[in-house]
Design a binder for these strands. Structure first.
Length: 723
DNA sequence: TCCCTGGGTAAGGGTAATCACTTAGT
DNA sequence: CACTAAGTGATTACCCTTACCCAGGG
């Protein structure tokens, strides 16, 4: 990305390899820009990529929305080592899929702010996120002024923004650990902290505050209480009453944790199945306290603490659960839930035409539906349906819903399916006249992969565990601790995206990470639909660790073993196909695992939480985790080459190819540039690069390399090379 | 003294995940 | 009858909002 700076302090993009626009539930448009050419970002090194204001400067050319007058954006660097940055902008109107479709051209101008947090003081800052407002009056005032804010569970996008803001804040102040600010600093010292990190979040400051405390409190997320802890908790409760802070401190738990646990403890509480007498008493009490008649459905306005008090043998949680999930429905004469209701639910939700699950009014949806036990129960029913799509967490709500609808219409079982969202951006590395840059936002062709997909338009992303192995230029052996091997799976008819924004999770094995595929964002690394596969990297993250691969339509993977041609602009990538049989024979996994991937990949749970995947993949990562491919899936193994390789391209290619094949794959028959051979049945492509990332402008004709199908095992080679 | 700001606590409704048990199918 | 998978109820750790409180400063 090239920029220039004029005397007004305006930094203007000259060219952008690509961007990806995504939209969160609040209509905020997230624009992801690769920033792997930061050295070209203006002539002044001091031009930090922080908090630039991005303005979409031409409505007509932008095609974002006819009614979109102006969209302001602030960029946030993802991290110090991450040269990409994230741009968040709030649009007054929503970007539709069509508007993001191929051909849409945005003109974007980046205005640099001198002060990193100056943007926070601009008019774009939501008064909601800058107000503590604990009183009703505060809220009423804001509502009257037409403000709305987000409630309920935090989305992944929100958490990302929050983390990014915190990261930005601590870096700007030279602080290593945010807990220093949160738990050690005085109010005065952390004066602007919460307001700063709340920027871009349409949440009350207090909500941000609570969220941050929870996230960074290592006494939170401790897990299940042991019987010993329960005993100690009882003692402490007797001693300290409701002083939750003291009890929590004594127990090594957060105050809210011990408070919540105490709510579940009641000496008089029964567990297990409810007796008829208990059920009868619960119904009586509920109707008595709500002033309703028996047989009348009650789902709101119940004080469960009071109910529990009167029921006597059950906690408030038990009472609530029993009532909302069963008794309310039973005593009001409800009917059984059927498979048709499942489909009905999906369709009804779709009819609401909401963009976010949080917008669903479950009360209305449940109204008059005899088989629905309560709005809360209906929501849990939706959740049950939803999570049968293994990658539901990664998918935009609308995509998930559409997928479920189609499956329902086709009467396909929606269990164990993966729903995909094909969307990526194709860069136009144009040299638009200063001070503006043209960014072409394109959609991936749904291509032949859709046609042969029995799930119709459903695209199926594949989450791919990646092992990264560094290779030094002078030592081309594949020593484990300095090698990176990126293992991808692909087929002849396949679409891939390399995503600039991602979550990288260490697996526990040094140099080995998981990379999460996103659902609707990406850089245009595409594999076209034909027996010839063309990987075209229009842009890429700045380092191998940032590569995210998003595979679509694994059905096609299953069938394809034809030769493929790789067109890689990444001169430092070794690409090798791997026969799937070898992979799946050791770790056969179904589609569910493929789509879902390791749980830890689905969003960050907070800095105090270890990724779940770490445990299962520690030392076995190279032999187990990277085997998560469905049967018949052919794999690509891409190995990035160290930046220090000072070799001329042709020489380096040859040299690396030879060493690769000799030492790792026990193969030969390599050629310069076109490295092709039967290495234990496989083929290796090696293209040396001085950089560890793919650059669009590096794409040249002679970088097109044929790649034949591997039939032999590579697995043991991989294991050897990375162990 | 009053009011505002920033921060904090407790109560309680709620969510999401998992465990435990039951039921249906083979 | 045994086994297994799916379904369902119960449980619980954690999340979030609401209401109220308090200290410090202007």
């Amino acid at each position: 990305m090239n920029t220039a700076e004029d005397e007004s302090g305006t930094v203007t993009l000259e060219a952008v390899n690509s961007v990806t626009l995504t939209q969160d539930t609040d209509g905020n448009i997230i624009l992801h820009c690769p920033h792997n050419e930061s050295e070209e970002l203006g002539s002044d090194e001091s031009l930090e990529p922080v908090h630039k204001r991005l303005c979409l400067s031409s409505e007509e050319e932008l095609h974002v929305s006819d009614s979109s007058p102006r969209i302001s954006v602030v960029t946030l660097p993802i991290s110090e080592n991450d040269e990409s940055f994230e741009v968040t902008m709030t649009a007054t109107t929503e970007l539709t899929e069509n508007e993001m479709s191929e051909g849409a051209v945005a003109q974007i101008q980046i205005l640099q702010n001198d002060e990193s947090h100056a943007a926070q003081k601009t008019e774009e800052v939501s008064p909601v996120s800058q107000a503590w407002f604990t009183t009703k009056e505060d809220k009423v005032t804001l509502v009257k002024k037409g403000h709305k804010w987000k409630q309920g569970m935090w989305s992944k996008e929100e958490i990302d923004i929050l983390m990014s803001n915190i990261d930005q804040y601590i870096k700007s102040r030279g602080i290593q650990d945010p807990t220093e600010i949160i738990f050690e600093m005085s109010k005065d010292e952390r004066k602007d902290f919460y307001r700063s990190i709340a920027w871009g979040l349409n949440r009350p400051l207090f909500a941000v505050y609570r969220r941050v405390l929870r996230m960074y409190d290592n006494r939170n997320h401790v897990g299940k209480y042991t019987p010993e802890e329960i005993e100690k908790l009882k003692e402490l409760r007797e001693k300290h009453g409701n002083d939750w802070a003291t009890i929590g401190a004594a127990l090594g738990r957060s105050a809210s944790s011990v408070k919540d646990r105490c709510r579940l403890m009641k000496d008089t509480c029964n567990t297990g199945k409810w007796t008829e007498e208990e059920e009868r008493r619960l119904a009586e009490v509920v109707h008595e306290l709500t002033g309703t008649e028996p047989g009348h459905a009650v789902t709101q306005g119940v004080s469960w603490a009071s109910v529990a008090e009167l029921v006597g043998t059950r906690s408030e949680k038990q009472c609530r659960s029993k009532w909302l999930n069963y008794l309310n429905w039973k005593q009001s004469g409800g009917t059984e839930w059927t498979k048709e209701d499942d489909i009905n639910l999906i369709n009804r939700i779709a009819e609401l035409e909401v963009n976010d699950e949080n917008e669903i009014n479950w009360d209305i949806l449940a109204g008059g539906w005899s088989s629905v036990r309560s709005p809360q129960w209906l929501r849990s029913k939706w959740w049950t349906i939803k999570r049968q799509v293994s990658n539901h967490k990664e998918l935009p709500f609308t995509v998930l819903l559409k997928g479920l609808q189609e499956l329902a219409e086709n009467q396909l079982p929606y269990s164990k399916v993966v729903v995909g969202s094909p969307r990526t951006g194709t860069a136009s590395p144009s040299s638009a006249p200063v001070p503006q840059v043209q960014i072409r936002v394109a959609r991936l062709e749904e291509s032949a992969s859709t046609a042969s997909n029995p799930m119709g338009a459903l695209q199926i992303p594949v989450q791919i565990p990646v092992q990264i192995t560094h290779v030094s230029a002078t030592d081309t052996s594949f020593a484990a601790n300095e090698s990176e091997t990126i293992t991808l799976n692909t087929g002849a008819v396949q679409t891939f995206e390399i995503l600039p924004s991602f979550h990288l999770q260490p697996t526990g094995t040094p140099g080995t990470y998981y990379i999460q595929t996103g659902s609707n964002q990406g850089l245009p690394l595409t594999v076209s639909a034909s027996p010839t596969v063309t990987l075209t990297a229009a842009a890429s993250p700045s380092s191998p660790e940032q590569i995210i691969v998003h595979g679509l339509s694994p059905d096609n993977l299953l069938a394809s073993t034809e030769n493929v041609t790789m067109q890689m602009s990444h001169p430092g990538v070794i690409i090798q196909t791997v026969s799937s049989e070898d992979l799946v024979s050791s770790a056969p996994l179904g589609q569910t695992e493929l789509g879902a991937g390791p749980p830890a990949l689905v969003g960050s749970e907070g800095p105090d939480k270890e990724p779940v995947a770490t445990e299962s993949s520690s030392t076995q990562a190279t032999e187990t985790e990277q085997l998560q491919f469905s049967e018949g899936v052919k794999c690509l193994q891409a190995t990035t080459v160290s930046e220090t390789a000072p070799l001329a391209d042709a020489e380096a290619q040859e040299q690396l190819a030879e060493s690769f094949t000799t030492e790792t794959l026990d193969s030969s028959n390599m050629e310069t540039q076109v490295v092709e051979g039967s290495i234990g049945g496989g083929t290796v492509l090696i293209v040396p690069s001085p950089n560890s990332f793919i650059q669009t402008r590096d794409i040249v004709g002679d970088a097109v390399l044929p790649l034949t199908t591997l039939t032999g095992p590579i697995l043991e080679n991989q294991g050897e090379s990375s162990d």
